[in-house]
Design a protein around this nucleic acid. Structure first.
Lengths: 233, 233
DNA sequence: TGTACATCAGTGAACGCGCGTTCACTGATGTAC
DNA sequence: TGTACATCAGTGAACGCGCGTTCACTGATGTAC
C-alpha cells in the first residue's frame, strides 16, 4: 500500500521514505522547508515558482505541514529573505576582513556584493529588487550588513580618503553596487563589457567619485573642471 | 434591458455607454486598451493588478475584445513597455537639450532619469527591474534612449572631461542612475537623505568618478592616493 | 507492570478565487448586383 | 432603388489551471496513575 494516493505526481522523496520526526524534533522540518524554498528560488530563478505546494512537494511532505511551521506564505518568504541577508552579510565580512587597507577593503566589499548578486540572482532579486513594505523586519535585516559597510567607510574617512557623513557615503556606495548588479540581472542581453573587469571598474569609479566630488567645486566651468581633474595625473 | 448581465460588478463606463467603433476604426480601441493598462499600472502600483480582466473592465469592454488587438497578455505588456521607454526617452532629451554645456547636459539627464523612475515607479519597475528575455524587442527599445546618452557622453569626451569608450562610460552612468532610482523604489523606508539633493549628489559623484578614475593610478598606496586627490582642491 | 490519555507531527480532501484563453455567437454596416 | 451578403467589431459563457488556506482527521509516542 503506497503512502501516495494523489492523482498528480508523487512527491520525489530524495532519500527513501520520509520519516516522521520524533517527538520533540518537529521543528527540524522548519529548516528543511526553508532550505527547499531557497533551493527552488535558486534553481527555477523565478519567485513565482516558489508556491506552497512546490515547497511541500520538494520536502516530501503534505501541503498543510508547511503551516505547522510558518504562519503563511509571506512568513516563509520573509524567513527566506533573512537567510539571504545573512549569506550576503557573511560574504561582505569575509571580503572586507581579507583586505590589507581600508580602501581595498571597501572595493573588495563592493565586488563581493555584486558577485553575490550575480551568483544568486533570484535570491538577490527577492530581497533587493522588490518593494518591501514589511519595513521593520527588512530594515533590521539590512541593518547588520549595512552597518559593516558604514564602518568600512568610516575607516576610509579616518584614512583621509573620504570626507562627510559615513552613513550618507555608504548609501551612495550601496546604490552604485546595486546599480550594476541589478541592471546586469535585469538586462543580461545587453552587450556588457567583460564582466569582472567592468564590475571592478564600476566599484572603483564609485569610490573615486565619492572621494573626488568632495574636493571639487561644482560651480566651475567645464574648462576649469578639466584643468582641475588633470592635476590628478 | 441592461447591457450588463454579469454576476460580478458592472464595468464602470466612464462617459456613458460605450459605443461600438464605426467600421474601419476598430483599431482605436487598441490605444484605449494600452492606456488603460498603463493607468492601472500607475494607479495600483502593482503589475499583478494588471490582468486582462481588469484592463477590459476599465475600458468598458468584454474580455475577449482585448484579444482582437493583442495576441496575448505578453503582447499587451510589451506594448506598454514600449510606451514607457518612449516617455523616458522624451524626458531625457528634454533635460539634455535645455542644458548649456555637455557636463550640465549629462547631469540633467541623470537627474531626469531618476526623477522619471520615482514619478512612475511601477512603469519603471516593469521595464527596468524585471528580467526581460524578450531580448530583441527590449534592446531596440533601450537603444533609442541609450544612444542619446552615449552621444552626450561623447560630447563630454570631446570637451576633455571623460576619456575612454563612450558606450562603456554611458553604461557606467546608467548603472549609477539606475542604482539610486531602483534602490529608492525597492527600499522606500530606509532613512534616505533629502531626496532631490541626494539624487543630484549621486549623479554628480558618478560623473566625477568616471572622469577622475581615468586619471588616477589604481595601484597607488592609500597615502599616495590621498595626496593625489588633495590636488583637486 | 499495565493502561488510559494527552500531546505531537502530520495528512487527505476540499474550499473559493482569479487567472489567461477560446469558442460559437450577435448584430451593425458597407458593398455588389 | 432594393436586397443579399461579406465583413467587421464585439460578446457571453465556459474551459482548465494553480494558487493559498482550512478543516476534520490519523496514528505514533511519551506520561501519569
Amino acid at each position: 500500500m503506497s503512502r501516495c494516493r494523489q492523482t498528480r505526481a508523487c512527491p520525489p522523496v530524495s532519500d527513501g521514505v520520509r520519516r516522521r520526526a520524533p517527538r520533540g524534533r518537529g521543528a527540524e522540518l522548519r529548516g528543511e522547508i526553508l532550505q527547499a524554498a531557497m533551493d527552488l528560488l535558486a534553481e527555477t530563478g523565478d519567485e513565482a515558482a516558489v508556491s506552497v505546494r512546490a515547497v511541500a512537494q520538494r520536502v516530501g511532505v503534505s501541503v498543510p505541514s508547511i503551516y505547522l511551521h510558518f504562519a503563511d506564505k509571506q512568513d516563509l518568504m520573509d524567513a527566506a529573505s533573512g537567510e539571504v541577508f545573512e549569506a550576503l552579510h557573511r560574504q561582505l565580512r569575509a571580503a572586507g576582513e581579507a583586505a590589507p587597507d581600508p580602501v581595498s577593503a571597501l572595493c573588495a566589499q563592493g565586488r563581493a556584493y555584486v558577485h553575490f548578486a550575480l551568483a544568486n540572482p533570484e535570491h538577490y532579486r527577492v530581497v533587493m529588487m522588490q518593494l518591501h513594505d514589511a519595513a521593520q523586519g527588512s530594515m533590521t535585516n539590512v541593518g547588520a550588513g549595512f552597518q559593516y559597510l558604514v564602518d568600512s567607510v568610516a575607516a576610509c574617512i579616518e584614512a583621509g580618503v573620504f570626507e562627510g557623513e559615513p552613513f550618507e557615503l555608504a548609501l551612495g556606495l550601496w546604490t552604485a553596487a546595486h546599480g550594476v548588479a541589478s541592471l546586469m540581472l535585469a538586462k543580461p542581453y545587453l552587450p556588457w563589457p567583460e564582466r569582472d573587469a567592468f564590475i571592478d571598474r564600476t566599484i572603483w569609479r564609485a569610490g573615486v567619485g565619492l572621494a573626488a566630488a568632495a574636493r571639487l567645486d561644482r560651480d566651475a566651468s567645464v574648462p576649469h573642471l578639466v584643468e582641475r581633474l588633470d592635476r590628478l595625473r
